[in-house]
Write a protein that binds this DNA or RNA. Structure first.
Lengths: 399, 399
DNA sequence: CGTATTTTGTTTAGTGACGGCACAAAGCCA
DNA sequence: TGGCTTTGTGCCGTCACTAAACAAAATACG
């Protein structure tokens, strides 16, 4: 009586992204008959992935009320690990992008990736045991370009890791050695990607990018600027995983020299250090540049004219760069993270005006939004781990 | 006894792009059993789309020799129309991208699009009647950005057409009024797109881009520079058809002013006029700028040092722009058209070196090739028309 | 030169996913 | 209370596809 196999994946994706609250809309979205949609939902329920409300939800409209469809409250979770300049942490993320649990996190990152990832995976394993839930996969977010198909971290930013380290293999080995029980092939695939890319993916599925067809994400951490692109719901990482290196677009022909040989690059003109410099502040060594810049905006943007004009200068340059990207990629939404998130929060109108002015077809209505998730990289890493399940639940999790 | 429906489209695409010379490899490519592949091939043959060799082709290897699979020699054709600054023409293109017939072409383009397209469609209708072959669809290539989903030509370059004219609707109406018999919905869809985009699509399927996963195409006509992107075999035109407007990337911070307000844009630094100016030649009014620039390279690149250094200057700037695009898009191949095609033909090594030097991850091996098709835009327009057939042959052409 | 091997193509039977349809259920509306 | 509307389910037929056996046409090898 088990019907519905080819529609299993799409159906789960719809529930996962919150676009299928009932079996009725699932029927419409899949373009199948009610019988098939019902069978698909039953199958997903049997797999322990979704839950069907026993009581019909009174919608208030006419006709028989439908039963609510939701993510299974105690279904499988994905193990997500994030490494960044200030530390690393593990987390469990359920379907729907909900953070189930987070490890305390460690504040220092050892020079040996195997050491760091081993510790993180150990923490994740502990979380898994405490939660008692099944693990559907594992994903890792790193602050580096990750090349495909090798899975090596080409430029681990602000980490003592050796550039080019085979971080995916190391992660996979750590998972294997820690004895984390994972479905699918053995040894387990240690899905790994750049953190900004993963943040973009998470924002697309569960955050400010929800519903967009083509989403452009731009953001900055401590130094430099990164980009990410989600096309038709899938991360575009290019032929070898190195797409969206947007840092060296020229945004100010008379700007300062960049190590790339050019001058006025987005990288050096719109990062936290650029804001501090433009505001005439000396960067202190105590906290991260991102925190210092964000704090500067928070506390002095309203009161200090120099800070305000520094912010506006960065907004103008960012707008120039965004316009170039919009002209090339023609997304239908832009989401900004890191320091750029703060910029759009305080000077959104100015930023939109600059982009509209410099983009060719007057993309005046281009929605530019601030990132909305608290732990985007972790959710995105989980998204990576969920991907095989979302494509074919039966093969991955089937008995 | 008719098996194979969901695999019909993929199978036809494989034959269409020359990746399925026999039923055996079709079996492997589709990932189905021999029985299914055989049924699929039989179905496509019954639809008059492909032909199976009656005699086995002696391959020389062991085992039973397989029968060759090819495009049906007298199968349906697509009606392709191209409009450009120097005129317009109609053509018939068969599966596999083979030009079956071309109208003489008219050398002047009237200010009224309906007049021009009516004449072109009339010529195409005549070609169809003379060939006696069925028409599978019609496609139009225009030298303008075409916005989606409206299908209007936003900036018809070097034409007297009014910007924003609803060229797709006009084309569809001309097809309808001319009485061209088309399968599918009525009124017929007048598939229309930008000519450079269509050239890129054609190059990807039947030319220098064949086999590439992500193909970046850049080229210039008379003035300005355009780009196109084929991702996983499909044209990426963005959310509203306006992607790949690459003309205003900054390639020379100290370059000349551009109407966009910036300076040193790819648009004005690497087009035919830029070459003539750099070589110290006055552009004559007699022939097109593209022809003058191409002729200059052909006849004087070898002999005149000023011409050679002008070419090299353009190559350096083009390389700068290509590097930016490669950093953003990470394609696995680049194809250049128009004047840029000539540049890569005479200074390919220099161009590759510049791109390798300025691209972040040392994409030194990035293949940069010259476009290889004679009538790329026409073939691409036909490709557009074929698309519904390639996706679901039975629904479109089925009895 | 004949037989084994290898690869390709076809026939047959069986399975399983899906659509179509009828029916039941559970709310609004008059 | 009896329609009306929408949702959910059971049943059956259809058909695309797999599996497996068979047939065909070449080469490889003794």
């Amino acid at each position: 009586m088990e019907r519905g196999r080819s529609h299993l994946g799409p159906a789960l994706q719809l529930v996962h992204t919150g676009r299928a609250p009932t079996r009725a809309v699932l029927t419409a979205e899949l373009g199948v008959t009610r019988a098939t949609a019902g069978a698909v939902a039953a199958e997903l329920e049997a797999l322990g992935l979704i839950a069907v409300d026993p009581h019909p939800t009174a919608v208030g409209t006419q006709g028989r009320p439908s039963h609510g469809l939701s993510v299974a409250p105690r279904g499988p979770v994905a193990l997500a690990v994030q490494v960044h300049a200030d530390g690393f942490r593990a987390a469990l993320v359920g379907l729907g992008g909900t953070l189930v649990g987070t490890s305390a996190g460690c504040g220092t990152v050892d020079a040996d990736p195997a050491q760091v990832l081993g510790e993180a995976v150990g923490a994740g394993r502990e979380l898994l045991e405490r939660s008692g839930r099944r693990c559907a996969g594992a994903g890792l977010a790193v602050p580096s370009a990750v090349d495909e198909p090798a899975g090596t971290a080409l430029n681990p930013l602000h980490l003592a890791w050796e550039p080019g380290v085979a971080v995916r293999d190391i992660f996979a080995r750590c998972l294997d050695e820690a004895g984390v029980e994972l479905p699918g092939p053995h040894p387990p695939p240690g899905h790994t990607a750049n953190d900004l890319n993963l943040t973009a993916l998470a924002e697309h599925r569960h955050g400010a990018g929800s519903g967009a067809r083509h989403l452009l994400a731009v953001g900055t951490g401590h130094r430099g600027v990164g980009g990410a692109l989600v096309l038709d719901g899938r991360l575009h990482t290019g032929s070898s995983g190195l797409a969206m290196e947007v840092g060296h677009l020229t945004v100010d022909p008379h700007g300062r020299r960049c190590h790339c040989g050019s001058r006025g690059c987005l990288d050096v003109e719109t990062d936290p250090l650029a804001l501090l410099t433009a505001a005439g502040r000396d960067p202190g060594p105590e906290t991260s540049l991102l925190d210092q810049a964000a704090e500067l905006i928070r506390s002095e943007y309203e009161t200090d004219a120099a800070v305000r004009s520094a912010v506006q200068l960065l907004v103008d340059r960012l707008g120039f760069g965004l316009a170039s990207l919009v002209n090339i990629l023609n997304p239908d939404r832009v989401v900004l993270g890191g320091l750029h998130r703060r910029l759009v929060e305080v000077e959104g109108e100015r930023l939109r005006a600059v982009v509209a002015d410099r983009s060719l077809w007057g993309s005046g209505g281009m929605p530019i939004r601030a990132a909305s998730l608290d732990h985007g990289a972790l959710v995105g890493a989980a998204e990576l781990a969920w991907q095989p399940v979302l494509e074919d639940p039966l093969t991955v999790l089937g008995n």
